Simulated assay, not measured.
Amino acid sequence: MLRERLQTAIRAVYPPRCLSCGGLVESDAALCGACWGGTAFISGLVCDLCGVPLPGDPTAGAESCDECMRIARPWARGRAALLYRGTGRALVLALKHGDRHDIALPAARWMARAAAPLLVPDTLIVPVPLHLTRLLRRLSNQSALLAQALARVTGHDACPDALVRRVRTPSLDGRTREERFAVLGDAIAVRPRRRAAIAGRPILLVDDVMTTGATLSAATDALIAAGAGPVCVAALARVARDT
């Protein structure tokens, strides 16, 4: 009873706010109606490798999009929670650049629903790393925040520092697919002290956004080279040009 009264008092002073626009909502970590409507959650039939939505019957079985049929993906399966547009894009940018750590947990719940088919027993959740200089500037790695929240939601283990970005790569914004793959190369590796923790374990590799998949490919290659596998990938948002 006392706890309920305290919660009521707190809500009176600090009413729940929409994760995106800051408007009043009924519960914590929620979106208002308008922002929910502006968020393109992915459902139905999706590409089994990257999670982009596809036309067709969702019960038809595993399908691949045109991009994944052209590009060899080193990972086994992939999913994304929403499309990188509208409110979804705003949430990703707020988490990434706006110090909005409160977005991580609800975002992880959305990702958990999307990635449920990929989470086999003993899965280890691993985030895509930031280079140290970027980490010091941002003070947090948005992919690590998502990975830790996803571990909390699903009950699986997470290893936030399994990977290291050895080279400070330039921004990939505006670069072509070929340029992104060339820039990343061997930029990502498994930390030597984490090799034993990942060896032989299924991995769910987590990133905030999947565009061409170059970063996820480099990270997957590093994990497989260190003896992990199979590797699946999950992103909060997927860039999709033809949906």
Rank of each mutant, 00 (worst) to 15 (best):
R73P: 04
F181H: 08
L6T: 07
A108Y: 02
M1W: 13
A235E: 04
A116T: 09
C21N: 03
R238M: 07
G23R: 14
D173I: 13
T123V: 06
A34D: 11
L204M: 10
L136D: 10
G78H: 01
A196I: 07
G185M: 06
L93N: 06
A62Y: 06
P106E: 01
D207K: 07
L172C: 08
H97E: 12
G88D: 03
V120I: 10
A144N: 13
R168K: 13
G200H: 11
V167A: 07
E4Q: 15
R168C: 08
A151M: 06
P15L: 01
A34H: 12
V92A: 08
L184T: 04
A237C: 06
L2Q: 06
A228T: 09
I188M: 12
F41N: 05
F41I: 02
L135G: 03
G213Q: 02
W36D: 11
C18Y: 04
V46F: 07
L93G: 01
T211V: 05
A30M: 01
A214D: 10
G200R: 11
A218V: 02
A182W: 02
R85M: 00
P127R: 15
Q148R: 07
R113W: 14
R3Y: 03
L91S: 07
F181Q: 09
C68S: 04
V128W: 09
P160M: 08
P230N: 08
A60R: 08
G51Y: 02
Q142I: 10
L163T: 10
L184D: 06
R5P: 04
F181W: 08
A30T: 11
T8W: 11
L118W: 09
C35F: 03
W75F: 05
L132W: 15
N141H: 14
R109A: 13
R175K: 15
R134K: 15
R193E: 15
G229W: 12
R152I: 09
A107G: 13
L2P: 13
A225D: 10
C159F: 02
E26K: 13
T220D: 06
C35V: 00
G51Q: 00
R137W: 15
T212M: 04
V167R: 15
G78N: 03
R177M: 01
S143G: 09
W36V: 14
V209I: 14
T243Y: 11
H101C: 04
A197I: 05
S43C: 07
A147Y: 12
A12E: 03
A76K: 09
A226C: 04
S64I: 02
D242V: 15
R166P: 14
C68K: 00
V128K: 06
D173C: 08
L105P: 10
I42H: 10
A240C: 15
G33A: 02
R70C: 05
K96P: 03
C65T: 00
R3K: 12
E4N: 14
V209W: 05
G33F: 05
P192T: 05
S64R: 15
R193T: 14
L139E: 15
A9L: 15
A196N: 09
A40H: 02
V25T: 13
A147L: 01
V167W: 15
T8K: 12
L145K: 05
T87A: 06
E179T: 00
L139H: 10
